[in-house]
């Protein structure tokens, strides 16, 4: 992050400053020429990243018949009907609700549990502290695919009462997805939060202790308000990740009306025939909530993640 910032700063030309700017040493890390080069490279990379997205966005507003007859390089056939059709045919209302029911509890649970672990790891020195952090990080490195069969079988064996799950087991229930997402996201959150908490001055805790604050109070009333920026940043990230999660939903949910919206995107594909423009429209709809969350909390996101990175 900070690398990009300095690049941006370096490429902004000094505006009408009468005083001679401090002369940069020729051949420094970012001379003028290199800065320009970096800008060009970054612009190209940004274009390469954005192109497919913009392409999908453009074609989501075009009729399939038109693009099929004239090719995708043509211009015309504009329509908004893809969006209406995607919303109704994909039954997105229901699936958005499912996604909400999975994402919100999973994110809240992840942040709550990992902040408690991080608090202990950062504030108390037990012998197993480092090992415990290691375990959390190691679990984070495991690819979920490798755990597919164990988790699937484990969930099948865990009984749930019928009022919690129609299937009588963890399979086919939101509980399973909430738990699995929480488990897989906790490693990262614990790591970030514990590092952040370590930057809080120790003296605050000493005085809190002197004033008679219990450990719980130190956690809830002292630490939590102080790590709010980091929590906000993580919440943004987690909402994006859990909402976008596709793999576990397809494996653990076998009932069509319980799928979250990312998996339900497949509803727009036929057995043989796929209207790619319709799928593009559906993808844009599915991506919108993430974009909204991301842009709304962008400020928190950047400041939250960089605050812990420079220890001064």
């Amino acid at each position: 992050m900070s690398g990009i910032d300095s690049v941006l700063v370096a490429t902004v030309p000094p505006l009408g400053d009468k005083q001679a700017p401090p002369k940069r040493k020729e051949g420094g890390v970012l001379s003028k020429r290199r800065g320009a080069l970096v800008t060009v490279i970054i612009a190209l990379l940004a274009l390469a990243w954005l192109f497919p997205l913009l392409w999908a966005l453009i074609n989501s507003f075009r009729e399939y018949e038109y693009t099929q007859a004239n090719g995708y390089l043509s211009f015309g056939g504009w329509t908004t009907s893809n969006y209406e059709q995607a919303w109704t045919q994909g039954n997105f209302g229901l699936h958005m609700k499912n996604s909400l029911l999975i994402t919100v509890p999973a994110v809240v649970l992840t942040l709550w549990l990992s902040s408690m672990v991080a608090f202990v790891l950062a504030r108390f020195s037990y012998r197993f502290n480092l090992a415990l952090l290691g375990v959390f990080l190691a679990a984070n490195l495991l690819p979920p695919q490798a755990l597919l069969i164990p988790v699937f079988r484990m969930f099948r064996e865990i009984p749930l009462p019928y009022f919690m799950s129609d299937s009588g087991s963890m399979l086919n229930s939101f509980w399973a997805l909430i738990l699995v997402n929480t488990a897989f996201q906790m490693g990262f959150c614990t790591f970030v939060l514990s590092n952040y908490m370590k930057t809080l001055p120790y003296e605050i805790y000493e005085s809190a202790e002197l004033d008679g604050a219990s450990v719980w109070r130190q956690y809830w009333q002292l630490t939590m308000p102080l790590v709010r920026p980091a929590l906000a940043a993580l919440a943004t990230l987690q909402v994006t990740w859990v909402y976008n999660e596709f793999f576990w939903a397809t494996v653990l949910i076998q009932q069509g009306d319980k799928l979250p919206v990312t998996s339900a995107l497949n509803n727009l594909r036929g057995q043989f025939f796929t209207d790619t423009n319709l799928v593009a429209a559906g993808s844009i709809i599915v991506a919108l909530p993430v974009l909204v969350v991301f842009f709304a909390l962008q400020k928190q996101f950047v400041s939250g993640l960089t605050l812990g990175s420079t220890k001064g």
Partner: peptide, 11 residues
């Protein structure tokens, strides 16, 4: 229980 064709087949 309606699941789309490809997801049904793959899972």
């Amino acid at each position: 229980n309606a699941v789309d064709h490809n997801t049904f087949q793959e899972s």
